[in-house]
Structure formats: structure tokens, C-alpha cells
Write a protein that binds this DNA or RNA. Structure first.
Lengths: 212, 212
DNA sequence: TAGTGTGAATTTCTTCACAGCG
DNA sequence: CGCTGTGAAGAAATTCACACTA
């Protein structure tokens, strides 16, 4: 018997949070069992995909019945490493950075924002949501002190690569990049990006198709 | 000769804005020709993909030379329907909605924010960035008056479907949804979503893999 | 000669369809 | 009987590799 490797497909990983959200909703509503068909509806995908995706985590369903909601929540959380909170630092406290600092959704979902950082000294006098804005030169200390695990880059595009380098140097291995630029980092660092204008542009394409 | 159909693949469409951004950067820097290899570097993808993607738009490159930057910008903009501005309404002026209203990136890139809307009367007294916050009951008028083309949903999850329905009823056919919920809309409406917590959760998965 | 454009090969993702189990 | 789990089929996306040409 060969040692099991777990090549959970990328596409599946990207959907697990979607299932998780739906499952939590069900749990809150008192539902304790769900079929792949129902879960698919809630998550906005098709049922075969749900079953295939979940099969990559193991066989947690019961034939003829469905999946135990609580158990599935547990398994997906484990798969995603959501057992414990992961602390966040936001770099770049302009409009977007401030907004994200104020946005409650992160703390609620296990990603407490622990520190805010900017390169502009005039901004390091403010506080946002009771958090002081530190100067980026203190990044190494801040990351160590708050056990920061994730960095959000909300700087202008020109500053983003430098910030990424400093985050990595400080030991951060997960980065969510809001700056409209492609960042180069070591393979050991995970990067994802959110590009708001890009989403609008893609919408534009399909809008045209619709004959608008 | 058969009438050309243009099934530009989804994956390609999603990358066109990426190329566009890089190309604009090159144009600003005075570069007027670019190879697929260089463009691939800038966009963070591989060169074969760039060529294949661009070939879906037509043959705009020159063998032995590369692509004319200005021309390619033009062609991609045309493909994405970026010839003219598309007006935006933001629904839900909480933290995130306010932030996006203040975020300059949209106006800059051809998506002027024309109106803000909320269901909470206590918020309709404010203004954000010189824009008054209107009550959502006036949505139909607002959409018509400002020729709104895109709606951003920044409400809590529970309100999002209702807002989507009202946007569609008012004639909006492109929606960017920031609420963590799957929306059901008519096929003629394009929806994309941005889920910030989802991105962090996916980062969590790859963080674990890295042995953090 | 340098670099596009593209068929073909490969990989990844999705969907089907049904055996098998509770 | 209902629903999972999964091989197999099918579709989509990626990558290769090279003919071709400006």
C-alpha cells in the first residue's frame, strides 16, 4: 500500500469555503443532515460536483441519508486549517485599508486584524477601530509580537512589491494582495489577489454579450 | 465561409484585464512593442497562454517582432466593452460600501460611481465623497436618471437577494456581489462575486500545506 | 532570426450514470 | 428506496512544439 497523497484539486479547495458557509447556515437553522442536492442549491453549484469535492476529504456521507452537517463543518474546517484563528496585518491604510480594518467580517470569521501599518508618517498618528497605525519600519516587531500569519496589501501598485518583500522577510507566509499588480514571491509563500476593477471589466465583457 | 462565432473562453476573458493592465503600464513607460514572453512576465502567466489568449481576439501580433502595445490595448478594450464608461450604484453603505465609495480605483478605470443607496433611513442623511445616500425605494428613478449599468451589493447577506431582485427589476444587468451569499438571478443578468473571507480561508489551506 | 499562431498532447475540471450501501 | 461515492466519459484549459512569416 502506497502512502496516501492528498492532491485535493485546486478547484475543490476554492469551493470548500462555499460549502462551509452554507453548512453553517444550515447548522444555525437547526438542520443536522443535508443531501448533496440541497447543499448544491445553497452553494450555487451542481450536485455531482458537491459529492466529488467532498469525496476528496473522505467518506463522510451516509448513503440514503446525506451528510451530517456538524461533522462536515468540522472536517472542512480542519481541511482549511480553521481550527485556530490566524492574525492579520493590514499594510496601507488608505481608503481601502481603512475600510477593511473597519469591516467586521474578518474578525467574525476567525481572522482577527491585529495591526495596521503604513509608510506615511502622517498616518501613523491615527487609530482605526482602536488600532494604532504603526510605521512599516516596525513590521518585523509587529509580526513577531502579534504572531501575524496573514498580510493584506492595500497600498498603491507601485509600493506593493516592496511591501510583499518586507512581509516575507518578517516571516509572513500568506498574502492577500489588493494592489493591481502581480507580485513575485518565494514559492513557500501563498499569494492570492483581489482586483476589484478586474471584476468590473470582466462583467463588462458578459454585459456586451447579453446585447446590452 | 461560416459566420465567425467567438467563443472566447471564460478563462481567457478573466485574464484580459490582466494583460490590459500590463499593456497600459508599458504604454505609459513609452514601450510600443512587446513579446508574448515579456507580457507573460508582467501579467504573471506563461507565454504560451498569452499567445493563445490573444489569438482568440484575432491575429494582432507580428511574427519576429511581437505585439503593438497601443493596438493591443485598443483591441482588448473593445473586447471588454471599455470604450465607454459604465456607471455604478453601490447598495449598502456600511463600512464596505463607504470604503468602495471612497476608493478611487473605480472612477479612474472607467467605472464612475454615480449613486449610493441604503435601506436604513438614518444613513440617507449622510453624504460620502459628495454623493448623497438615497433610500433604496428610489432605486428605479436613480438607475434611470444616472443610466446605471452596474450594481455593487455591499449589504449583509440576509438583504442581498432582495437587493439583487430590485436591481434587476430596475434594469441593472451586471452585479458585483460582496455579500457572502449565492444570489439567484435571471440568466440575462451577469453576476460576479468577491468574497473576502473566502480568499483568506483558501490561503489557510495552502498555508497548512507549506508546513506552517 | 526572433517570435507569433496553432494543431496536437496533456492535464485539469466537470458531468454523467450507476453500482452499492444504509 | 434514496443518496453517496466513484469510475468513466466529456469538456475545458493548459502546455508543448514547431511550421511559418515579417
Amino acid at each position: 500500500m502506497v502512502i496516501e497523497d492528498r492532491p485535493v484539486p485546486e478547484a475543490t479547495v476554492a469551493r470548500l469555503p462555499l460549502y462551509l458557509r452554507s453548512l453553517r447556515g444550515l447548522a444555525d437553522g437547526g438542520t443536522d443532515t443535508v443531501s448533496s442536492v440541497r447543499l448544491a442549491e445553497l452553494a450555487g453549484v451542481n450536485a455531482a460536483k458537491v459529492r466529488k469535492d467532498l469525496s476528496h476529504l473522505g467518506s463522510y456521507g451516509t448513503r440514503g441519508v446525506g451528510y451530517d452537517v456538524a461533522h462536515l463543518v468540522f472536517e472542512i474546517e480542519r481541511e482549511l486549517g480553521l481550527n485556530e484563528d490566524r492574525s492579520v496585518v493590514i499594510v496601507g491604510i488608505g481608503n481601502l485599508g481603512q475600510a477593511l480594518a473597519n469591516y467586521g467580517g474578518f474578525n467574525e470569521r476567525g481572522f482577527p486584524i491585529k495591526a495596521l501599518v503604513d509608510a506615511d508618517p502622517s498616518r501613523t498618528e491615527r487609530t482605526v477601530r482602536d488600532l494604532p497605525v504603526h510605521h512599516i519600519d516596525d513590521l518585523v516587531d509587529i509580526v513577531a509580537r502579534h504572531q501575524i500569519s496573514i498580510g493584506l496589501i492595500c497600498t498603491p501598485a507601485t509600493a506593493a512589491q516592496g511591501v510583499a518583500d518586507r512581509l516575507v522577510a518578517a516571516g509572513v507566509r500568506s498574502i492577500l494582495n489588493f494592489a493591481p499588480v502581480v507580485l513575485a514571491v518565494d514559492d513557500s509563500v501563498s499569494i492570492r489577489k483581489v482586483d476589484l476593477a478586474l471584476e468590473l471589466q470582466v462583467l463588462g465583457f458578459y454585459h456586451q454579450l447579453g446585447g446590452g
